[in-house]
């Protein structure tokens, strides 16, 4: 028997998972798909930013790579956008291997600033990269040529695909959390010097975490491009993309299995509703809202919602006496 305490968060998740299929409202369906997409990227960020405590503000670089890989393969070679996903993942590995080792030497805020700077640079490079559409960006297929284009009239198929990817990512994270790697990452996040003294090869484990984190973030970018059918430097490599992941994870609880998902369930519907009400994607308002959320979390609950809600804390593991 599964203890009730562990069963009921699962029940909530199952209900949330099937809810979008019970509505015919396209807005709700679209929001549901975007919630899961945001949960994927925030959960991916959580591997390096949450568990390993390396607060990256540069993950937009991975998201952008995934999105651009998809629409470049379509735009330049006529391949279905989803074919860009594996390419994006491979490219994310290359990027991790290049930016990981030097930035990992930076500690605390300096790491955040270093990753932020690299991502900002990437955005500028893409703006000036004519082959990739420059400042205008890239389009996906307007009409489905085959099923492989994954072009659907409503959002439910996307929702289902995203949910499968999220489930895979959370299952992997769960396994990692229980393995030596999970312990080592948390130890690195909590006290790098002590971790090293206990035989943890810190730089190597940070790199493992970044490779996994970057790959799933790139996949999220590809999925985004497949669904939206358009990407430009701002929606792929923009600063707000990185900030989004950080805020969503921080809101739900960094370094917890379900924290980023919880953060996405709360934040994304809010964003989409305000966008719908205010029209456009009112980025100015989004920045203000993020600032407020960050301040509230820092002031009242540095552990995010997970701290307030012990049941989702670290996957319902036994609470300390």
């Amino acid at each position: 028997m599964i203890p009730l305490r562990r069963a009921w968060p699962v029940a909530v998740l199952v209900i949330l998972a099937i809810a979008p299929f019970l509505t015919a409202n396209p807005f709700y369906q679209r929001v549901a798909a975007l919630v899961v997409l945001a949960a994927i990227s925030a959960s991916a960020w959580n591997v390096i930013g949450g568990y390993a405590g390396q607060i990256s503000f540069g993950h937009s670089i991975y998201f952008g790579i995934g999105a651009y890989a998809s629409l470049l393969l379509f735009g330049r070679f006529g391949l279905p956008p989803i074919a860009g996903a594996p390419l994006g993942i491979v490219a994310s590995f290359v990027v991790s291997l290049i930016i990981g080792p030097p930035t990992f030497r930076l500690r605390g805020h300096y790491f955040s600033m270093g990753t932020f700077a690299i991502a900002a640079l990437a955005e500028i490079l893409v703006v000036n990269w004519k082959f990739a559409g420059g400042a205008i960006g890239l389009m996906g297929p307007a009409m489905p040529r085959s099923l492989a284009d994954l072009l659907f009239r409503n959002s439910l198929p996307y929702y289902a695909i995203f949910l499968a990817v999220l489930a895979l990512l959370l299952a992997l994270t769960h396994l990692m959390q229980r393995s030596r790697m999970g312990f080592y990452l948390r130890a690195i996040g909590a006290g790098e010097r002590a971790a090293e003294s206990l035989g943890v090869p810190v730089q190597r484990y940070k790199l493992y975490a970044l490779l996994i984190s970057g790959a799933f973030t790139a996949l999220a970018g590809s999925l985004y491009a497949v669904m939206i059918g358009f990407v430009d430097p701002e929606s792929g490599f923009g600063i707000l993309i990185s900030v989004n992941m950080v805020v969503i994870a921080a809101l739900g609880g960094v370094g917890t299995l379900f924290g980023p998902l919880a953060g996405a369930i709360i934040l994304v519907p809010l964003q989409e509703t305000t966008n719908a009400l205010l029209g456009g994607s009112g980025t100015g308002a989004a920045y203000v809202a993020y600032g407020l959320i960050i301040m509230l979390i820092a002031r009242f609950s540095p552990g995010g919602l997970a701290e307030l809600w012990p049941l989702i804390n670290r996957n319902g593991r036994r609470r300390a006496a």
């Binding site: 312990f183 080592y184 130890a187 206990l198 943890v200």
Partner: peptide, 23 residues
């Protein structure tokens, strides 16, 4: 330098994992 966010046992497990990779 203790590992905040972990229990006492988990702190010690980080050391033990060096020679015993299985949890």
């Amino acid at each position: 330098i203790v590992f905040a966010g972990m229990t006492v046992r988990e702190n010690v497990m980080v050391g033990a994992l060096l020679r015993h990779p299985h949890r």
